[in-house]
Deep mutational scan, measured.
Amino acid sequence: EHKIILYENPNFTGKKMEIIDDDVPSFHAHGYQEKVSSVRVQSGTWVGYQYPGYRGLQYLLEKGDYKDSSDFGAPHPQVQSVRR
């Protein structure tokens, strides 16, 4: 199983989107239009992308907690697509 939770604010606060065993080419299409400032990967390895359609900067997200976007190497809290 692959499970990831994306949070609007640092330290796992604010609006969140939970994804289980699915690739998401556009967070906006899924109704999530917030920034991504923290991430909790509960299982599996994911790649987050700066822009929709798996474009832009890529961020490797392995199991663990990323309490701020800088923890996974993002210069800005901008992640708009993700895949396993």
Score class of each variant (00 low, 15 high):
52 P>K: 07
5 I>Q: 03
45 T>V: 11
63 K>W: 15
7 Y>G: 04
36 V>W: 13
55 R>V: 04
30 H>K: 14
7 Y>K: 06
48 G>R: 05
7 Y>L: 00
12 F>W: 08
5 I>T: 11
67 K>T: 04
54 Y>W: 00
10 P>F: 02
36 V>D: 00
49 Y>S: 07
4 I>M: 15
55 R>N: 05
33 Q>Y: 15
53 G>M: 06
64 G>C: 01
27 F>P: 06
32 Y>D: 13
74 A>P: 06
22 D>L: 07
32 Y>R: 11
35 K>V: 10
55 R>T: 09
26 S>E: 14
29 A>G: 12
79 V>Y: 07
42 Q>D: 07
5 I>L: 02
67 K>W: 08
12 F>S: 07
25 P>M: 03
49 Y>G: 04
39 V>A: 05
22 D>Y: 01
22 D>H: 15
17 M>E: 15
59 Y>L: 05
54 Y>H: 00
49 Y>H: 11
57 L>Y: 12
8 E>H: 04
35 K>C: 12
59 Y>T: 03
13 T>S: 02
57 L>I: 13
74 A>V: 09
71 D>W: 09
2 H>T: 04
69 S>E: 09
37 S>M: 14
34 E>C: 14
19 I>H: 01
77 P>H: 06
65 D>K: 04
69 S>Y: 13
5 I>R: 00
34 E>I: 14
25 P>V: 09
17 M>T: 14
35 K>F: 07
79 V>N: 02
24 V>K: 09
70 S>C: 11
50 Q>S: 05
1 E>T: 08
58 Q>V: 01
47 V>G: 00
24 V>M: 12
17 M>Q: 05
13 T>R: 15
40 R>L: 06
64 G>N: 02
69 S>G: 10
8 E>R: 04
46 W>Q: 01
42 Q>W: 04
40 R>T: 10
62 E>M: 04
25 P>K: 09
20 I>A: 02
59 Y>I: 09
68 D>L: 12
70 S>K: 14
78 Q>N: 13
42 Q>M: 15
57 L>H: 13
3 K>M: 04
67 K>C: 07
3 K>F: 04
23 D>H: 03
15 K>S: 09
19 I>N: 14
65 D>E: 12
29 A>K: 12
23 D>K: 09
3 K>A: 04
43 S>D: 02
57 L>S: 12
26 S>T: 09
59 Y>D: 03
32 Y>L: 14
1 E>I: 13
74 A>L: 05
78 Q>A: 13
27 F>T: 09
6 L>S: 05
34 E>W: 14
44 G>D: 00
8 E>A: 11
42 Q>S: 13
17 M>C: 13
42 Q>C: 10
53 G>C: 15
34 E>R: 10
78 Q>S: 12
76 H>K: 06
28 H>R: 14
15 K>P: 05
12 F>L: 10
40 R>C: 09
63 K>S: 09
30 H>M: 12
33 Q>V: 14
62 E>R: 11
32 Y>M: 13
15 K>Q: 15
29 A>E: 13
8 E>S: 12
69 S>P: 12
41 V>R: 00
67 K>I: 15
53 G>A: 06
60 L>R: 07
76 H>E: 13
1 E>R: 00
54 Y>R: 02
76 H>R: 09
78 Q>G: 10
59 Y>V: 11
17 M>F: 08
46 W>G: 05
35 K>H: 10
36 V>F: 08
25 P>T: 02
43 S>Q: 09
40 R>A: 08
22 D>F: 07
70 S>N: 14
6 L>I: 13
5 I>H: 00
6 L>Y: 04
12 F>I: 06
54 Y>S: 01
36 V>S: 07
20 I>V: 10
4 I>V: 00
16 K>M: 15
33 Q>S: 10
78 Q>I: 08
58 Q>C: 09
16 K>I: 07
77 P>T: 07
8 E>Q: 15
60 L>G: 04
24 V>I: 12
63 K>N: 03
45 T>Y: 05
4 I>C: 05
43 S>G: 11
37 S>Q: 12
84 R>C: 05
50 Q>K: 00
34 E>A: 13
24 V>Q: 04
23 D>P: 00
12 F>G: 05
67 K>Q: 11
9 N>G: 14
59 Y>Q: 04
61 L>G: 01
